[in-house]
Design a protein around this nucleic acid. Structure first.
Lengths: 221, 221
DNA sequence: GAAATTACATACATTCATGGATGTTTGCAA
DNA sequence: TTGCAAACATCCATGAATGTATGTAATTTC
């Protein structure tokens, strides 16, 4: 079948991304050839190499299509007014609920966490993903700083480390839940999971190292 | 060089595992051939195939050598007397400190998280690893249940979900820290990170699904 | 309505990892 | 001392994946 119309070409591109999600999730990125992706999509390798430069480009396209909704969440949270801590809580819950409900997000995050390796040929895709993560973390740190300024968190909260903690927790939940989605219903339990952590943040957050003007005894042994 | 003595053979086995750690971390598991591992270790592929059945067996050996100290921590914590919650806290901190200090643990966890994909040829290794994880989670759930029994956590705490939360948090910290170890000193900050979460667990843990009719008042401890 | 280009399919050359077979010393036991 | 097997090294055949080059029909564009 040579030369379809523009819309048909866009459709085959989507089919290729859909096929990539299925095959990569089932067999892993490195272990599956582009020929398998093509046959799964009902086309030949020619179509793959027409739409994507190589496997890394295909993976990048797959990621972008799945991650963009989450990026939008982060941006909305960053622009939101009201309690920063409540906004942060809502953002975390929203992201986890989305992962628990959206089939595409589920597949792609499973691939990113468990069925692919960064570096090597996927360097471009993984670096782009890490850039997105850094951007999201900067937004989260801004939220936490605003929470400190609003008195929702202690004044000597270490905002950077708290950001790492939040990100690690949400990422860890995604990482582990995609490993066994049958363990619990993520969309239902997301709020409870996030609330436990936010309560801990508010009650006992990591503090900035007060090494400067402390007359206190050092915590060393 | 044929036929070394027993101890020399054991030494080359260790050299192979060391080389695997370096090469897999630098280039990823799937993208590196066993020939690269061999030359990195100063031997040929013959030695690799003598000591290990295939790449999956090599990875499994590498994992076992690095994970066994953490397994020992879990077992010690499981057998410990005293406050269950304090024991859990100590276990999490100890594991993170170990990751932050031990070079081998650092390399292998970086490989497991970011430089390998489960399934496929590494099915045996990854299944074994997941078995270990399940075992560790069972130990943690036992600790949390004891904390509930001791009154350190609310009576209607959902122990299973709390276990998932603890595991997700610790795993998430490992996952993210290995991505950028220069972000902070894990061994120094581990206690603060864990304390924030344990405080949240104690203050606002996930509760067992109250399975009540809607419109009813919230349950409490 | 021709020309130019798109959207693929097909064929091909090259590279490269794998695993098994085989060779070759040497440590160790009888 | 012989004999066997351990501990590798070397060689080879196979297959598979990649990227490119080319073919081709339909579709825009002018």
């Amino acid at each position: 079948m040579p030369r379809r119309t523009r819309e048909e070409a866009a459709a085959t591109r989507e089919q290729l991304l859909d096929a990539a999600e299925r095959v990569f999730r089932d067999r892993g990125v490195a272990r599956t050839s582009l020929a398998e992706v093509a046959t799964e999509a009902g086309v030949t390798r020619g179509a793959v190499y027409w739409h994507f430069r190589d496997k890394a480009d295909l993976v990048a396209g797959m990621c972008q299509r799945a991650v963009s909704p989450m990026d939008a969440m982060v941006e909305r949270a960053h622009g939101a007014a009201g309690s920063p801590l409540a906004t942060l809580r809502g953002l975390c819950v929203e992201a986890l609920v989305h992962l628990g409900r959206d089939r595409r997000a589920h597949a792609v995050f499973e691939i990113l966490f468990h069925r692919s390796e960064s570096g090597g040929e996927l360097a471009r895709a993984s670096e782009r993903h890490e850039d997105d993560c850094r951007h999201a973390k900067a937004r989260v740190e801004s939220l936490i700083a605003r929470a400190v300024a609003a008195g929702e968190l202690p004044g000597d909260t270490d905002c950077t480390l708290a950001t790492h903690a939040v990100h690690a927790y949400v990422t860890g939940i995604m990482h582990e839940w995609t490993l066994d989605p049958s363990a619990y219903d993520l969309a239902v339990r997301a709020a409870a999971l996030v609330d436990a952590f936010v309560a801990g943040l508010a009650a006992c957050p990591p503090r900035r190292a007060a090494a400067v003007r402390s007359g206190h005894a050092r915590a060393r042994a």
